[in-house]
Amino acid sequence: MPVPSDVSDVVLHYLPVRAKAEHLRVLLHHANCTFEDKIYGFADGAWPAAKEAHTFTFDRLPMLTFTKGGQKFAIPEGVAISNLVSKWAGLAPADDEEAALADAAYSAAGDVVKIELIYNGFIKDKEANDKFLAGAVTHLKHMQELLGTNAFFGTQALCAADFLLFFLCDSMMAYRPELLEDMPELKTWFAKVREFPAVAKYLEVRTDIAAAAW
């Protein structure tokens, strides 16, 4: 389904890192959804103040807020946001088994997030990066096994898991370009996702970690 006509004031709330929000930005763009990309910084005290004020459910981000039919909604947790926006974008698998596999892939891809954060500047230590990257390679080989002979993690069509894992790999490849060289199926998958119009456009306009709204 497209973005409901009575949805307005859409805001994606996140931190000045790519991590769990980059794929959500692309999903929102693919859904032709106008949204505000609101960043809560560390240095300026915006994020510490938001936590202190208990601004967000669970005191963590991302969160998607919007108004629908005059009612305000606040959706926490990346998986819930991605499921909703995937429906808006027409990328939610209709088949129950395909949807289950897509959910499994999304959950498994999310396990790379703490590794991906290393490449967003939290740790500037090469030894620490290499250690985490070794774990990522093992995990990515498991992801390749899950992908199997399918074109995408939604089997024949892209789903949120494809976007999430793509951008995690993209960040890690900035540190180690040859990351997928020994994983041919995943390397082919990565190239296909990169050609997807919404992804290609995002990569063209992305200028820094705190990516601007579309």
Rank of each mutant, 00 (worst) to 15 (best):
G90T: 08
V85T: 07
P76V: 03
H54E: 15
A74V: 04
S107V: 04
A94S: 14
V79P: 07
V85Y: 04
A94E: 15
S107R: 07
E98Y: 09
A43V: 04
G78A: 09
A108H: 13
K68V: 00
G78W: 09
Y40H: 11
W88I: 05
S107K: 08
R60W: 02
E52H: 08
H54K: 11
F56N: 03
A74L: 06
A74F: 09
S86E: 12
E52N: 09
A92R: 10
T57I: 13
T65Y: 06
L91H: 10
A89N: 11
T65R: 11
F73C: 03
A94T: 13
F73D: 05
E52K: 12
D96Y: 07
A80P: 09
I75Y: 03
H54R: 12
A99R: 04
Q71W: 02
E98Q: 15
A109T: 03
F73T: 00
V79I: 10
Y40S: 06
K87V: 03
W88P: 04
L84P: 05
E97Q: 14
P93V: 02
R60L: 06
P76L: 10
F56D: 05
E97F: 10
A99G: 03
F58P: 14
S107Q: 10
T55A: 14
E77V: 00
Y106L: 13
P62Y: 03
A46E: 08
A74W: 10
T57E: 15
T67E: 12
E52S: 13
A50D: 12
L64W: 04
A53K: 14
L64I: 02
G45Y: 01
L101M: 13
K51W: 02
P48E: 12
E77M: 10
E52C: 05
K68Q: 07
W47N: 05
S86I: 01
K87M: 05
K68H: 03
F58W: 15
G45L: 03
A46S: 15
A100N: 14
G45W: 01
G110K: 03
A92M: 10
T57R: 08
D44P: 07
F66P: 06
L64V: 03
L61V: 05
V79K: 11
E97G: 04
A102H: 14
L64A: 04
A99N: 09
L91W: 13
W88R: 02
L101P: 04
G90W: 09
A108F: 11
A50Y: 02
T57C: 11
A46W: 00
Y106E: 15
A100F: 13
A94C: 08
I81G: 13
K72S: 06
K87L: 06
P62L: 05
Y106M: 11
S82L: 01
P93S: 05
F42P: 00
P62N: 09
V85A: 10
A100R: 14
E77W: 01
E52Y: 02
S82V: 01
K87I: 02
